[in-house]
Amino acid sequence: MRKLLILVSLLTSLTCLGQGDSTKSDVLSQKLIKAQTDYYLNQTKEKSEIASILSSLLGTLLGAGLALLGVRWSTNRQWELEKDKWNQTQALEREKWEKALEHESINEVRIAAATLAKILAAQNQAIMWLTWIGLHEPKVFSTNDIANYNADMKKLFREEVVAEAYLAALQPGLYIEMGLLAKQVSSIDYQVTVA
Rank of each mutant, 00 (worst) to 15 (best):
K45V: 15
K99M: 12
W86F: 15
E102G: 07
V27E: 10
M128L: 12
E49T: 02
Q43H: 13
S74Y: 14
E95W: 13
Q184V: 06
K45W: 07
I146S: 09
L69M: 09
K34L: 12
N87A: 08
D152S: 14
Q184W: 00
N124H: 07
L10S: 07
E102K: 11
N76H: 02
E95S: 15
W86E: 13
K34G: 11
V194M: 11
N148A: 14
A51F: 05
V8T: 13
L5F: 09
G179H: 01
C16K: 08
M1D: 06
E159M: 03
Q191L: 15
E49A: 05
K83P: 02
G18A: 14
L180N: 07
A35H: 11
A117L: 01
R158D: 10
L130M: 06
S22V: 03
T193V: 14
S48R: 05
E93K: 14
Q43C: 13
A126H: 00
S74N: 15
L135S: 11
D21K: 10
A168Q: 05
M178A: 02
K24H: 10
D189S: 11
I188C: 02
L135M: 07
L41S: 12
E95H: 12
A151W: 04
N42E: 11
L174H: 00
I6L: 11
A182M: 03
L4E: 09
M1H: 10
Q90I: 12
S25Y: 09
R110Q: 05
E98K: 15
H136G: 06
T23R: 10
E46G: 14
P138Q: 08
I53C: 01
L69F: 08
K24T: 13
A165V: 04
I133F: 06
T89N: 15
G173W: 03
G65P: 01
R94I: 13
T89L: 14
V192E: 00
A122L: 00
L135P: 00
Q19E: 13
T115C: 02
L156S: 05
A64M: 09
V162T: 02
F141V: 08
I50N: 06
R2K: 14
N42I: 12
A35S: 12
S74A: 14
K34M: 12
R110W: 03
V192R: 06
T143E: 11
L14W: 11
V8W: 08
A169G: 00
E49M: 07
E102S: 15
S52A: 04
K96V: 08
E49D: 06
A121P: 05
R94C: 04
V8P: 03
M153E: 06
T115S: 03
K99D: 13
V161I: 06
K47L: 14
N42Y: 10
I119V: 05
L170C: 00
L135D: 15
D26N: 14
L5K: 07
E177Y: 02
V8D: 08
N124Y: 03
L81H: 04
I146E: 06
Q125Y: 04
E98Q: 13
A35T: 12
A169I: 00
R2E: 11
G18M: 14
D38A: 13
D26C: 15
G18S: 14
T37K: 11
I188Q: 07
N42D: 10
G70I: 07
Q30A: 15
S13H: 11
L7Y: 13
A91S: 09
W73P: 05
T60Y: 04
I6P: 05
L156F: 01
